[in-house]
């Protein structure tokens, strides 16, 4: 089959659409996350989501999103709330929460093995690499990601200047009348929702890559917040499209192909950054 043939397939079209939207959202949020030293929040929150799933399974709940979403949002809020004024800094607090959630979840599953779930390590693996592959998306999932992405993009455009002010100097922003608590809370909720939904679609490994790589690549070369944000979004979308197409043509795993594409761009921009300096 040629590339044109692949593009005729509905599941490839869906994968491209959802992939582009998710990579756009996560790279926009990624710039502020990387600058706040929360690069690994995607990974951390996915572990939290796993812990919450364990609680839901042990409690015998059928729809575990009812418990996964609130717990993950709560953790995101706790992590991001205090921002620059936190006692435990970003990377350490993410590590603490993620390891703790993983351990508690695993322990619960071992103590009270939920009926019908015998393969615990399989579940852990699923949260890392995505429950449903991006190539087998249902119509509801496609619709959900479109709605979510539009909400995130509107949020980002409307709050862009506030996000910059708070990310650059939270104390100054608070001292001169910006409601930093409110915006940190909104940001935390949006991040948690994006991560939980995207995790299910593409896996937490890819989410972490989509958050950090485009932002870091753009920061190598560009020097203003606006240019970095725009460039990160473009890089992210480009790499995802290339990754999905390449994986279809060469039949490689989608997630890792996208990550490799991001890695290649990062290498390229590091090189560019060195020359331009």
């Amino acid at each position: 089959m040629t590339l044109a043939d692949y593009l005729q397939l509905t599941f490839v079209q869906n994968a491209l659409l959802v992939g582009v939207l998710i990579s756009l959202c996560s790279s926009l949020l990624g710039v502020t996350l990387v600058l706040r030293r929360f690069s690994f929040i995607g990974d951390g929150l996915s572990h939290v989501a796993f812990g919450a799933m364990a609680v839901a399974a042990v409690a015998g709940m059928t729809n575990d999103m009812l418990i996964v979403m609130p717990i993950t949002i709560l953790c995101a809020v706790l992590l991001l709330r205090s921002g620059q004024r936190a006692k435990v800094k970003g990377d350490a607090s993410v590590a603490m929460i993620s390891v703790a959630a993983l351990a508690v979840g695993y322990l619960l599953m071992n103590l009270w093995p939920p009926s019908g779930k015998s393969n615990i390590s399989g579940d852990v693996c699923t949260t890392l690499f995505g429950g449903t592959s991006i190539l087998t998306l249902s119509e509801t999932e496609v619709l959900a990601s479109i709605v979510l992405s539009i909400v995130v993009m509107i949020f980002f455009v409307v709050f862009y200047h506030k996000i910059f002010a708070i990310t650059f100097d939270e104390n100054f922003a608070a001292a001169t009348g910006t409601n930093t608590k409110l915006y940190n809370l909104l940001l935390a909720i949006i991040i948690a929702v994006v991560i939980v939904l995207a995790m299910d679609l593409v896996g937490s490994l890819l989410i972490s890559a989509l958050v950090v790589f485009p932002a870091l690549s753009a920061m190598r070369v560009l020097k203003s917040f606006r240019s970095v944000t725009i460039c990160a979004a473009c890089i992210s979308v480009g790499c995802t499209v290339i990754g999905i197409l390449a994986s279809a043509v060469f039949s490689t795993p989608v997630g890792s192909t996208i990550v490799v594409a991001d890695l290649a761009v990062f290498g390229l921009s590091s090189f560019l950054g060195l020359i331009l300096r």
Binding site: H161, F168, T176, G177, K223, S224, F225, V228
Partner: peptide, 18 residues
């Protein structure tokens, strides 16, 4: 490594009133 231009930073002084 924060990417921010002088213009962007000075302008952010107006944020509190927004």
């Amino acid at each position: 490594d924060f990417p921010a231009s002088v213009k962007e930073i000075v302008l952010s002084g107006c944020q509190g009133r927004q």
